[in-house]
Amino acid sequence: MSIPEITQKLLAAKQNKGLSFADLEKILGRDEVWIAALFYRQASASEEEAKLLVEALELDASYIQELITYPVKGLGPIVPTDPLIYRFYEIIQVYGLPIKAVIHEKFGDGIMSAIDFTLDVEKEEDPKGDRVKIIMSGKFLSYKKW
């Protein structure tokens, strides 16, 4: 998986400034996961959001145009090889159909929106080892009959 050049520059600037995505959340007023998606070109910023980010990272204003451009989304047609990303792929391979069945039982025939959607990552302290808690919330969209 190749990382876009702009992503590399944004990450380097963030590291040089000693900022976290949570720090940028306070500056931009957007969730840290959404900001990370913007860095990895999986989201596009408004002009105001792009200006705030470029100023916070002390980058050239030329980055604004690229940040407001609509990106091509997704990892591509390959199985991800990064171990953390692969685990999400594995989770969906194993639990995708069970999750789908439970959603259909509770909501009916439809899908969970990935557009009207939020995702939060939380750290749960546990004496047996800290846990990653991921909360996904998407609007349910029924299939229509015609």
Rank of each mutant, 00 (worst) to 15 (best):
91 I>G: 09
97 L>H: 14
146 W>N: 13
113 S>P: 09
50 A>T: 07
111 I>G: 00
87 R>A: 10
70 Y>P: 03
92 I>W: 14
48 E>L: 12
135 I>P: 03
49 E>W: 06
77 P>D: 13
27 I>Y: 04
119 L>R: 08
89 Y>C: 03
115 I>E: 14
27 I>V: 15
68 I>C: 07
27 I>W: 03
79 V>M: 15
8 Q>R: 08
53 L>T: 02
86 Y>Q: 07
61 A>W: 07
8 Q>M: 06
124 E>P: 01
146 W>L: 13
136 M>Q: 12
30 R>G: 00
140 F>W: 08
137 S>F: 06
126 D>S: 11
142 S>W: 08
25 E>G: 06
125 E>I: 10
68 I>P: 00
3 I>W: 01
11 L>A: 07
17 K>E: 06
117 F>V: 15
8 Q>N: 10
56 A>K: 02
76 G>S: 10
31 D>S: 15
43 A>T: 05
1 M>K: 06
132 V>M: 15
88 F>T: 08
15 Q>R: 15
55 E>V: 00
26 K>D: 09
47 E>H: 10
146 W>V: 14
76 G>V: 13
145 K>S: 01
21 F>W: 01
54 V>G: 00
19 L>N: 01
42 Q>F: 06
19 L>V: 06
105 E>V: 04
5 E>G: 00
30 R>S: 09
15 Q>A: 15
18 G>W: 03
8 Q>P: 00
53 L>W: 03
57 L>C: 02
63 Y>I: 00
135 I>Q: 14
91 I>T: 15
16 N>D: 11
95 Y>G: 03
34 W>C: 01
41 R>N: 02
24 L>I: 06
3 I>E: 07
86 Y>A: 12
68 I>H: 01
48 E>R: 11
80 P>D: 07
108 G>H: 05
84 L>C: 02
3 I>T: 07
117 F>S: 10
112 M>H: 05
109 D>H: 08
20 S>A: 05
106 K>N: 14
121 V>N: 11
27 I>C: 02
55 E>A: 10
4 P>D: 04
133 K>C: 14
137 S>R: 12
57 L>R: 00
133 K>R: 15
100 K>D: 11
52 L>M: 12
58 E>A: 11
85 I>H: 13
90 E>D: 13
138 G>D: 01
14 K>N: 01
125 E>G: 09
99 I>Q: 08
90 E>C: 06
109 D>G: 10
43 A>M: 06
110 G>D: 04
112 M>W: 13
118 T>I: 11
134 I>Q: 04
84 L>T: 02
35 I>H: 05
98 P>K: 07
65 Q>T: 10
43 A>K: 13
139 K>L: 09
64 I>H: 06
113 S>A: 11
22 A>Y: 15
57 L>I: 13
45 A>D: 04
12 A>T: 10
96 G>L: 08
77 P>R: 07
139 K>A: 13
126 D>F: 09
1 M>L: 09
